[in-house]
Design a protein around this nucleic acid. Structure first.
Length: 355
DNA sequence: AAACCGGGGAT
DNA sequence: ATCCCAGGTTT
C-alpha cells in the first residue's frame, strides 16, 4: 500500500466534504478540549447545542473553573455521562488555578487531566498543537478494521493496541490535524456502520474489506449483554409552594438532584410500595397521596429504569426528609435533574401552570 | 479484562 | 428491539 497516496486521497476528499463545525475554526486548546469532552460517545448533532451553550456561558477556562459545580451540571443537564461534566470542571480548576490558565502542551501532559484519555489527548494535541499523534475513536476503529481487513475485536485491550498502531502508521506527520479529522469524518460520512458509500470512497482502492466484498463484516466487536432492570419509586413531597429535593451521591446521575427514592429490584405495585418497610420508615404524617405517575421505561445503555412518581401533599410542615432541602417550586427549573425527572417536571408545569 | 456510566437517533 | 455515537474511569 502506498501510504502517501492514501493520505493525499483522504485529504483531498476531506477538503471537499468536511462539515462546517465551530470547533474546527479555532486552535484554542480550551475550546477544542471542551468540544472533545462534549462529543465523547455523543453524536455531533446532539453535542453541538451544548458546545454553543458552554462556549458562550464559559468563554474561557477561568470562567468555567470559577463557576459552581451546580451551574456546570445544569448546563450539562440532559447530555448524559455526567462524570464528564464533573471531570471537565475539575480539569478546568486544575488548569486555571495551578497552571496559570495554560493547558498541558503535549499529548503526554494532556493525559493527566481528569476525563482526558487516549483519544481526547491525541485529539487536542493534534488539533491545537499539530502534534503527530493519531486519534482512534469509534469512526477510526471502523475505517481501519475495514481498510486492513482486521477482525481483531475493536472493543478489547488488544484491539485498542492493534488499531492505534495502524492509525499511527497511517498518520500524515506533516498535517496530523487535518489527517485525524479526515479519518473521523470519513467514518462519520462515508464509511458508516450500515450501508457505507464505498462507491464514492476516496480510499476504496486501498481497502482490504472492499476488495473482498466483506465490508459489512467489519468491525468485529465482542458484545456484552448486560441489562439490569431497576424499579424506582420517587416520593414527590410538596408543602404549599415548596418541594423536597436531594442531591445524588453515587452511581448513576451523581451530582444531579432528585426526590426521596425507594428502589426495588423487582416490580412492585404502588400499594405494595406504600406498605413496604422503606416507605413506612419515612415516618410520614398528615399527607395526601395524589395519583401516581408511571413514566415510560427509561432505557440506558446498560440498564432499564421503571420510574413511578408518588406525589404527596403535606397538610402541615413535615419533620421528615431531614436529608433533603425544601425549595420553592419556582426554582426547580434552575436545578439539574436526570432526564426522566426533568420531563416529568416540565409536563407537570404545563398541566398546573398556576401551581 | 470487565463493568459502569446517559441519552438520542437510525435501522 | 438493537446498535452506535469525536470514550474514560473504576473495579
Amino acid at each position: 500500500m502506498n501510504i502517501e497516496r492514501l493520505q493525499q486521497a483522504l485529504l483531498n476528499w476531506y477538503k471537499v466534504h468536511k462539515r462546517d463545525l465551530p470547533w474546527r475554526k479555532t486552535t484554542d486548546p480550551y475550546l477544542i478540549w471542551l468540544s472533545e469532552i462534549i462529543l465523547q460517545q455523543t453524536r455531533v448533532s446532539q453535542g453541538l447545542p451544548y458546545y454553543l451553550k458552554f462556549s458562550t456561558q464559559f468563554p474561557n477556562v477561568h470562567a468555567l473553573a470559577n463557576a459552581p459545580q451546580e451551574e456546570v451540571l445544569k448546563a450539562w443537564e440532559g447530555l448524559g455521562y455526567y462524570s464528564r461534566a464533573r471531570n471537565l470542571h475539575a480539569a478546568a480548576k486544575e488548569v486555571s488555578h495551578n497552571r496559570d490558565g495554560n493547558f498541558p502542551s503535549s499529548y503526554q501532559g494532556l493525559l493527566e487531566l481528569k476525563g482526558v484519555g487516549d483519544y481526547t489527548a491525541a485529539a487536542v494535541a493534534s488539533f491545537a498543537y499539530r502534534e503527530g499523534v493519531a486519534v482512534v475513536d469509534g469512526n477510526v476503529f471502523r475505517v481501519l478494521s475495514r481498510l486492513f481487513g482486521d477482525a481483531t475485536p475493536v472493543n478489547t485491550t488488544q484491539g485498542k493496541k492493534v488499531f492505534k498502531g495502524y492509525a499511527q502508521k497511517l498518520l500524515n506527520k506533516g498535517q496530523p490535524d487535518l489527517h485525524n479529522q479526515a479519518m473521523m469524518e470519513l467514518g462519520a460520512l462515508q464509511c458508516t456502520p450500515t450501508k457505507p458509500n464505498c462507491r464514492q470512497c476516496p480510499v476504496k482502492d486501498y481497502c482490504s474489506a472492499y476488495a473482498q466484498s466483506a465490508v459489512a463484516q467489519y468491525p468485529v466487536k465482542e458484545r456484552k449483554k448486560y441489562n439490569r432492570v431497576r424499579h424506582f419509586f420517587y416520593v414527590y413531597p410538596q408543602y404549599q409552594k415548596q418541594v423536597a429535593v436531594s442531591k445524588r451521591r453515587d452511581n448513576i446521575w451523581k451530582g444531579l438532584f432528585e426526590f426521596p427514592l425507594l428502589e426495588f429490584e423487582e416490580p412492585k405495585e404502588v400499594q405494595e410500595v406504600l406498605e413496604s418497610k422503606d416507605f413506612l420508615d419515612l415516618g410520614l404524617r398528615a399527607f395526601q397521596l395524589d395519583t401516581p405517575v408511571k413514566l415510560r421505561a427509561h432505557k440506558l445503555s446498560h440498564q432499564t429504569l421503571h420510574i413511578t412518581i408518588l406525589p404527596i401533599h403535606f397538610e402541615d410542615k413535615p419533620a421528615a426528609f431531614s436529608h433533603c432541602q425544601w425549595i420553592a417550586k419556582a426554582s426547580l427549573k434552575d436545578l439539574a435533574f436526570p432526564r426522566p425527572l426533568r420531563q416529568f417536571l416540565n409536563e407537570k408545569q404545563l398541566n398546573l401552570p398556576f401551581d
